[in-house]
């Protein structure tokens, strides 16, 4: 059952990624070069709608959140390393799989590299888990929790900023 649901969700996700044209190398690198905002328009739209939907369901008691712990050392250093690889490869993990699906066969080298990267990380994990991966461990915190405001305040501000950014992008034809 969980495998079938995962596959169905993935097919829909991949379909939308492809239709939104965010799987292209030129869109990914175009964004990192700050000359094409397609992928950030796509991501931010998804995030704004998703945050409204998820917090509505949380308020109704129908789902629970799955927050990842904030660990400054891990997320800052790991995040910067990821960014370096992303700019060289031109895809992130999900979009590499999608890009291969729409015929960008060179993405397969990226996927193979990612398997090796995951394997190397598994080897390195024991050496990092008690130091680097614990630096600045702040636990499972959210923005509304840190700011001590209701989550709808944060969502409203976030959505307003996002829409202002979209209007700016369209004005500048990005």
């Amino acid at each position: 059952m969980d495998l079938t649901l995962g596959l169905l969700t993935g097919i829909l996700f991949g379909f939308l990624l492809q239709k939104g044209r965010v799987l292209r190398f030129e869109k990914q690198i175009g964004f990192l070069r700050l000359i094409d905002m397609t992928i950030i328009k796509f991501m931010l739209s998804a995030i704004i709608v998703g945050s409204i939907g998820l917090y509505m369901l949380v308020d109704l008691g129908m789902i629970s959140l799955s927050i990842k712990s904030t660990v400054l050392g891990a997320q800052i250093i790991g995040g910067l390393i990821f960014g370096i690889g992303w700019a060289i490869l031109g895809y992130c993990p999900g979009t590499a799989a999608g890009a291969l699906g729409e015929g960008r066969v060179h993405a397969v080298w990226g996927l193979l590299g990612m398997l090796l990267g995951a394997s190397l990380y598994a080897e390195a994990y024991s050496g990092m888990k008690d130091n680097l991966l614990k630096w600045g461990d702040l636990g499972k915190i959210t923005l509304p929790g840190v700011l001590q405001v209701n989550h709808w305040v944060v969502i409203s501000v976030f959505a307003a900023l996002g829409i202002a950014f979209f209007i700016w992008c369209e004005k500048k034809k990005l």
Binding site: F82, G85, W86, P93, G110, G113, L115
Partner: peptide, 10 residues
């Protein structure tokens, strides 16, 4: 790029 990206992501 894939090796670096996945190491960082994990």
């Amino acid at each position: 790029g894939g090796v670096i990206a996945m190491f960082g992501a994990r």
